[in-house]
Structure formats: structure tokens, C-alpha cells
């Protein structure tokens, strides 16, 4: 590619979080807030052609209302040349501390859009054991969890993998990492990972082990690249 061809537009993929109060904002709210911040930062976003021009920006699949996310992604097409650092700095100065860009990278090669490419999502749960008799509980819970979540009819179509880590310094806290499919039955039924339904089911199911969900957070998003899970940043 020659230099002249390179000057007129920049495609950037960026990662941002929404935490604290901003977990109560919907996907549409978040995208509206982001687009307005881009305009305030005087980053010239490109628009589609036609009667009703739309800004060229695409977001990763929605995170449910009330859940914090460390892994929201968006691809944006900007006028002119801009480097990642300036982009991040300019945009962050127009955003609230509850929602900031953590990483930005220029897209040089053609990539699939985030909504379609997203394959697996990682949710981190902080679980609290409520019963007084904790001994052996993590073990029993783990066996039950593995069995019900990966083979039980309510969950197995949603869960790709899971990991359990015992929190340091406290035997009452279990950190559960759940890798869920973003789309269930990709070909037949293009449903986005129904986290809200799952959350309700899961919360009820936990009762039999006297375990409460203390906190839940979307930690990462993965795309499939040559049969391997990679983060959206790793593929650009």
C-alpha cells in the first residue's frame, strides 16, 4: 500500500469498560453516550451515504443491564489520520470515569464485525458460601456444578467451559469463571447468549448449595480465529 492511499480514513478497534453506576445503562444508552463523546472530542466519525446517514461505528454484543463489563468493544471509522494514543486520550477526556477506553488499536486488515465475530463470553462470578458448615462444600459444589452446568438441559447449550478458583484469604468466597456461547446453536437459532435467563436459573440453582452471587462481571469476549479463541484485540 502506498502512502497516498493511506491518508483519508482510520479504522480503530477499542476496548472500554462500564462499571459502577454505568452498569445500569443499556446497550443503546452506552452506544449513544459513546457516539456523543466522539463528537465532543472532535474526532470526525465517518457517516454512511444516503438520506439518513448513520455514523460508522459498530459495537460488540450487549451486556445485560445491571452487570459490569470490563470487555466492551467497538469498531469506528474516522476521517483522516489519527494514532491510537491520541484517539484514546481525546475520547477519555470526554467520558465519565465509569466508562473509559482501556485499549485502542488501528485496524489494518479486513476484520469481521464484532457483533458477528463474538463467539464466547467470559463472566466472572464472585460466589459466597452462606452455610456454617463449609467443609467439603467447594468440592461438592464443584462436582455438582460441572455436572449440571455442562450436561444439564437448562445450561449445557449456553456453557462452553468453566473454571473455579478459591479466593485467596477467604474460604467463603468462590470465584467462578464461566465461558458462555455468545450465540446458541449458531446456525439454526441466532440467539445472543441469554444471560438474563441464565442468571435467573443459575441463582435459583445455587440455593441448593447455600451459595449467593455476590458480584458478577463480564470479563472478556473472544472471537474464533483459526479454531482458537482470541480476544478481539489480538486479531487486529
Amino acid at each position: 500500500m502506498t502512502e497516498q492511499e493511506n491518508v483519508c480514513e482510520t479504522r480503530i478497534r477499542f476496548k472500554f469498560y462500564k462499571k459502577d453506576e454505568f452498569k445500569y445503562l443499556s446497550h443503546l444508552d452506552i452506544s449513544r453516550i459513546m457516539i456523543r463523546a466522539i463528537r465532543r472530542a472532535e474526532l470526525e466519525i465517518k457517516y454512511s451515504q444516503g438520506y439518513n446517514p448513520k455514523p460508522k461505528i459498530g459495537f460488540s454484543p450487549p451486556t445485560p443491564l445491571g452487570v459490569e463489563s470490563m470487555a466492551e468493544y467497538a469498531d469506528v471509522l474516522l476521517e483522516g489520520n489519527i494514532d491510537e494514543r491520541t484517539f484514546k486520550k481525546k475520547l477519555n477526556s470526554e467520558l465519565k470515569p465509569q466508562m473509559l477506553i482501556s485499549e485502542a488499536r488501528i485496524i489494518t486488515e479486513k476484520t469481521e464485525n464484532l457483533m458477528n465475530a463474538a463467539a464466547v463470553v467470559l463472566y466472572g462470578f464472585e460466589l459466597h458460601i452462606c452455610s456454617s458448615d463449609n467443609k467439603g462444600m467447594p468440592g461438592r459444589f464443584y462436582t455438582g456444578l460441572k455436572k449440571d452446568l455442562t450436561t444439564g438441559p437448562d445450561f449445557c447449550n449456553s456453557i462452553f467451559d468453566l473454571k473455579i478458583i478459591t479466593a485467596e484469604g477467604s474460604s467463603d468466597i468462590i470465584l467462578l469463571k464461566l465461558f458462555g456461547y455468545v450465540k446458541i446453536f449458531k446456525e439454526e437459532n441466532n440467539e445472543i447468549f441469554k444471560f438474563n435467563n441464565f442468571y435467573g436459573f443459575f441463582e435459583n440453582w445455587l440455593k441448593k448449595y447455600c451459595i449467593d452471587i455476590k458480584n458478577v462481571k463480564k470479563e472478556e469476549l473472544f472471537v474464533l480465529c483459526g479454531g482458537i479463541l482470541k480476544t478481539p484485540m489480538e486479531v487486529v
Binding site: 454505568f22 445500569y24 444508552d29 456523543r36 443491564l65
Partner: peptide, 10 residues
């Protein structure tokens, strides 16, 4: 719509 009650607008 919990967003009604959280303040923190620009």
C-alpha cells in the same frame, strides 16, 4: 430503568 436514578451525566 435504573438509569433514571444514577446521576453521573455529563
Amino acid at each position: 430503568k435504573p438509569g433514571r436514578y444514577i446521576n453521573n451525566e455529563i
